[in-house]
Amino acid sequence: MTADSAYRPLLPPREAARILGVGLTTLRKITAEGRLPEPVRISDRRVGYRPADLDEFMRPSAPSTGSLA
């Protein structure tokens, strides 16, 4: 995690999916499989993904990376 990633705001699911290059359904699937940490619950109806979690998922050396499909 970079120093600035600790202070970035939470990302809505649509933005997190765009950054990862996947659709919302795939984002939910990889989260449910435990390959991406659960998002932070902001309210009863809203969640946000931590940018650092997305950074870790996209890092080639991370054990949870691999095929998104």
Rank of each mutant, 00 (worst) to 15 (best):
A6I: 02
V22C: 13
R14A: 14
A3C: 06
V40I: 15
Y7V: 01
S43Y: 07
L10M: 09
D4M: 12
R28C: 09
A16V: 01
E38I: 02
G48S: 05
R45G: 09
L10A: 08
Y49E: 03
K29R: 15
P39L: 00
L20S: 06
A6S: 12
S43K: 00
Y49Q: 02
K29A: 13
A6K: 13
L10F: 14
P12I: 03
I30D: 03
I30A: 04
S43N: 14
S5T: 10
L24N: 15
I42F: 02
A32P: 06
D44H: 12
V47K: 04
I19S: 00
L10I: 08
E33Q: 15
K29Q: 12
I30E: 03
A17P: 08
L24I: 09
Y7P: 00
R45H: 14
M1E: 09
I30Q: 03
R28M: 11
R46S: 12
R14N: 07
L11Y: 10
T26S: 12
Y49S: 02
V22P: 11
E38K: 15
E33L: 14
G21N: 08
G23L: 00
A17T: 04
D53P: 05
Y7E: 10
T25F: 10
I19K: 01
R45N: 14
A16P: 00
G48A: 06
E33K: 08
A32I: 01
D53S: 14
P37W: 03
T31K: 09
D44G: 15
P51C: 06
R35F: 08
T25A: 15
R46H: 12
D4P: 00
P13I: 00
G21E: 08
G34E: 13
Y49L: 01
P39D: 01
A52L: 10
G21Q: 07
S5R: 01
T25I: 13
A6D: 14
M1T: 04
A16E: 05
R41K: 15
A17D: 06
P9I: 06
M1F: 04
R46D: 10
L36T: 03
A3S: 12
P51T: 08
R8N: 05
D53E: 14
L10C: 02
S5H: 11
V40Q: 06
S43W: 07
R14F: 03
P37Y: 01
E15Y: 04
L10S: 01
E15H: 09
P12S: 05
R35P: 05
T26P: 01
L27M: 11
V22H: 06
A52M: 05
R18K: 15
R41D: 01
D4V: 14
I30T: 04
I42C: 05
K29I: 07
Y49P: 03
L36A: 09
L24A: 07
E38W: 03
A16S: 03
I42V: 15
E38G: 00
G23H: 09
P51F: 11
T2E: 13
K29S: 12
E15V: 13
V47S: 07
A17C: 08
L24P: 14
I30M: 11
R46E: 11
A32E: 13
P12D: 10
L24D: 13
G34Q: 09
D53H: 13
E15D: 12
A16C: 03
I19W: 01
R18V: 01
G21H: 11
R41P: 04
S43F: 11
A52T: 10
L27F: 08
T2A: 09
T2F: 10
Y7Q: 07
P39K: 00
V47A: 01
A32Y: 08
L36P: 12
